[in-house]
Amino acid sequence: MEIRRLRLLREFADRGSIGAVAEAMHMTPSAVSQQLKVLAGEAGVELLEPDGRRIRLTPAGQALVLRADEVIAAVDRAHEEMAAYSSGHSMVRLAMFPSGASLLLPAVLDNAAESGIDVTAFHLDVGYPEAPPALADFDIVVTHRDERMPAVTDPRVHVTELMREPLDVIVSGSSDLAHRRTIDVTDLADRDWISVEGGFPVDDVLLSISALTGVAPRVTQRMLDFTTIEALVAADHGIALMPRFAARHPGVVPLELKGVRAARVYESLTRPRPRKAVSAIEDHLREAVIGLPDRESPRGRAAAATDKKDNQPEGDAE
Rank of each mutant, 00 (worst) to 15 (best):
E161M: 06
R271K: 10
E42I: 12
H89D: 01
E49L: 09
R53K: 15
T213K: 04
L124A: 14
V108T: 14
M82V: 11
A151H: 00
F138V: 05
M96W: 05
R5N: 14
A20V: 12
E49G: 00
D168G: 00
V71Y: 03
L224N: 11
P59V: 12
R180N: 05
L167N: 01
K37P: 01
V278C: 03
T213S: 06
R156N: 03
S175N: 05
P133S: 11
A216N: 05
A305C: 06
L232R: 15
V152P: 01
G61S: 05
I140G: 04
E70P: 00
R299N: 06
P298S: 02
L188V: 09
S99N: 07
H158K: 05
M223T: 09
V265Y: 03
V142H: 03
D192N: 14
V202W: 02
L232H: 05
E114G: 07
R264V: 02
A13V: 03
G88R: 12
T186K: 10
R286H: 05
H123R: 11
P166Q: 10
G88Q: 11
V21T: 09
P29V: 13
D192P: 00
L6W: 03
N311E: 13
T160W: 01
D316Y: 15
D146H: 04
I281H: 00
D69R: 09
L105S: 10
E130A: 13
T270G: 02
T228E: 09
A216T: 13
H26V: 05
G198H: 03
M25N: 07
V75K: 11
A231H: 14
D236I: 08
E2Y: 08
I55K: 04
D310A: 09
A231S: 15
L8Q: 11
A43N: 01
T227H: 07
R286E: 10
R273C: 08
D294S: 10
T143E: 01
E318Y: 15
V152N: 02
A277I: 09
V260W: 10
A136K: 07
I140C: 07
M91W: 04
S30C: 01
E42N: 13
F122V: 12
G315T: 09
P274A: 13
E130S: 12
L47I: 15
P98E: 15
T228V: 02
A262L: 07
R148Q: 04
R248H: 14
R67F: 08
L105M: 14
L6T: 08
A101I: 10
L9K: 14
F138D: 04
M25Q: 15
M242I: 11
R156F: 00
I290C: 02
D154G: 00
E49F: 03
A107T: 13
R275D: 04
T186R: 12
E2Q: 08
P293E: 05
S86G: 01
G315W: 15
Q221E: 14
D76I: 07
D203F: 13
V289W: 03
A151E: 05
A84E: 02
D139R: 08
W193L: 12
D139V: 10
S115H: 13
M82P: 01
